[in-house]
Design a protein around this nucleic acid. Structure first.
Length: 206
DNA sequence: TATTCGATGTGCT
DNA sequence: GCACATCGAATAC
């Protein structure tokens, strides 16, 4: 399995919004006990540091958010609404407190195993189109907290085998109350594997 | 220590 | 479209 190699640290040390957009189209490589699951990132959100009221790092360092203040490239997993885990990748240099939430992806390889982790679904689009759904399908939980996606371990991010052209749409972030007007949600235009939320101010930025 | 509420998903109407 | 389950982290409601 040398098809996929982790993207290096420098990619994650850049501006959070830039990394959030650049992660679209990249592959999540998740090596389980049995096989390698591959999913293409289709939707992400940027959460900046102390200047972003919606970010978990907005106030101060806590036991939950501390990895956000570490070096870009590490994994931040948090538990939400009593049921779901959300998968984030820390960005920028140590001490910044920023991360990108991976909100949705397109299943590429290992779809049957993803289905077995996910449970009953109506159609393939529901497999990974949401942060909680994605974590369930890829079997990502709290034990992934602090792992490093620049290392070839149980989870890393790879360039796709073929470069693909697409447009990116930008909207407000989902499910937050503070900092709600910032256009920090990004998804691949016309890709069906995204969360469906309607906005009348969607902006195509590329 | 008690209380509040969330970077969600599901099921029912 | 809307109600609500569910529980741990954050805050002091």
């Amino acid at each position: 399995m040398d098809k996929y190699k982790p993207i290096g640290r420098k990619f994650y040390l850049r501006d959070t919004v830039t990394v959030s957009k650049d992660l679209l189209g990249k592959l999540i490589v998740r090596k389980t006990k049995y096989e390698t699951l591959i999913a293409k990132i289709t939707e992400s959100e940027a959460y900046r540091g102390s200047d972003d009221p919606a970010s978990h790092s907005h106030r101060k360092i806590t036991n939950r958010n501390k990895v956000m203040f570490d070096t870009g490239g590490r994994v931040y997993v948090y538990f939400i609404y009593g049921n779901y885990n959300c998968f984030n990748i820390v960005t920028e240099k140590k001490g910044t407190g920023s991360a990108v939430l991976i909100r949705a992806a397109e299943p590429v390889e290992g779809i049957e195993e993803m289905k077995s982790f996910r449970g009953k679904i109506k159609n393939i689009y529901e497999l990974t189109n949401g942060p909680g759904k994605l974590c369930k399908a890829l079997n990502i939980d709290k034990t992934f907290y602090g792992k490093d996606v620049t290392e070839e371990g149980e989870i890393f991010i790879s360039y796709p085998q073929r470069k693909e052209k697409f447009e990116i749409v930008s909207t407000k972030r989902i499910g937050i109350s503070k900092g709600a007007d910032l256009p920090f949600r990004f998804f691949i235009k016309d890709n069906p594997f995204v969360t469906k939320h309607k906005f009348n101010n969607e902006i195509i930025i590329q």
